[in-house]
């Protein structure tokens, strides 16, 4: 059984990393129409060739994948078929009148008073929820609500082609004994240390317990040089989301002296043409450390510079 030493980097319990990105998602015809109809306060469903109706509308039957023959307008009333409470919010399954399926939504009532089979009715949001399904605030108990009917969908709105969406994930990554020591050394001593490969003197960067190639245990720690050699490099001349530096600059994979594997970093340049000549595989470079306080990250090295011969 693996038993890691209970070591932690000094003052660096975990490494926070965030992945956050904008998206433009396409809902497809059925959901696109449903969402487009939210501001009109109409609930759109799908009718299948055998006459069954499901709501909210789907392009494919969740039961067997069949395609619907028409979009319809579903009523705002139905029955509660299941319920729970998560983080204080009551969520339930609702079957709208005239529909064969159920779907999840907020239930606007205390959990204690709910029972399966209760009549419910949609409540529309007072605020502007745009084309989100949350334009329906939820379903409230409506014991006396008359049975609603599915009707034809008159003059349906054009389906939304794209909706804006974002996803953000936060991570607190463990350093472990190897990365922990490496980043401590970077922060406290301004040096890059790796561990020797299992069968030689060169250091693996980043360090780890087991050699990537031989799958044998790695050796002792070793400080790598402040200088190194470019293995591969390209001149970045385009902007992409999430980029830390403004182009143009050089993306370089550098083998530090005494190391066997690459470190990924950047080299500042004046212009494309001179960089093509000056910076190439084999070019010698030197790490330029930050003037500010070191944080224990790769970016404590601000950049690399070409060593003029």
């Amino acid at each position: 059984m693996f038993a890691a030493p209970e070591t932690h980097p000094h003052d660096l319990p975990t490494f926070h990393s965030q992945i956050s990105m904008p998206y433009t998602l396409t809902p497809g015809r059925a959901a696109g129409t449903f969402l487009a109809e939210m501001p009109n306060r109409r609930i759109v469903g799908s009718r299948f060739p055998d006459g069954t109706v499901i709501a909210p509308a789907q392009d494919f039957s969740p039961v067997d994948g069949e395609e619907p023959e028409a979009l319809v307008q579903a009523p705002e009333t139905g029955v509660l078929t299941a319920f729970t409470r998560v983080n204080g919010d009551v969520i339930g399954l609702v079957r709208l009148d005239g529909c064969a399926n159920e779907f999840p939504h907020r239930i606007l009532a205390d959990l204690d008073v709910l029972s399966v089979g209760q009549r419910v009715a949609a409540q529309w949001s007072d605020g502007d929820e745009g084309t989100s399904i949350t334009a329906i605030k939820g379903f409230a108990l409506a014991p006396d609500a008359p049975e609603g009917k599915v009707i034809d969908l008159a003059d349906p709105a054009e389906p939304l082609g794209v909706i804006n969406y974002s996803m953000s994930l936060d991570f607190d990554h463990a350093y472990g004994p190897y990365y922990g020591r490496m980043f401590d050394e970077i922060r406290e001593h301004g040096r890059v240390m790796g561990v020797r490969v299992s069968n030689g003197d060169d250091a693996l960067l980043p360090p780890r317990e087991v050699d990537d190639v031989t799958h044998k245990r790695t050796g002792t720690w070793k400080a790598c040089g402040n200088t190194g050699t470019i293995r591969g490099c390209s001149i970045i001349n385009m902007e992409i989301l999430g980029q830390a530096r403004k182009p143009p600059y050089v993306y370089a994979e550098i083998v530090l002296d005494g190391a066997s594997t690459r470190m990924i970093h950047v080299i500042d340049i004046d212009d494309l043409e001179s960089a093509k000549e000056k910076i190439r595989p084999g070019t010698r470079v030197r790490a330029i450390w930050t003037d500010g306080e070191r944080q224990g990250r790769v970016s404590d090295i601000d950049r690399f510079e070409v060593i003029e011969e």
């Binding site: 990554h173 390209s234 990924i264 990250r297």
Partner: peptide
């Protein structure tokens, strides 16, 4: 890219 090692300089 490894979030610790290289991601901040990655260009896809």
């Amino acid at each position: 890219y490894d979030p610790f090692w290289g991601r901040e300089f990655a260009v896809g």
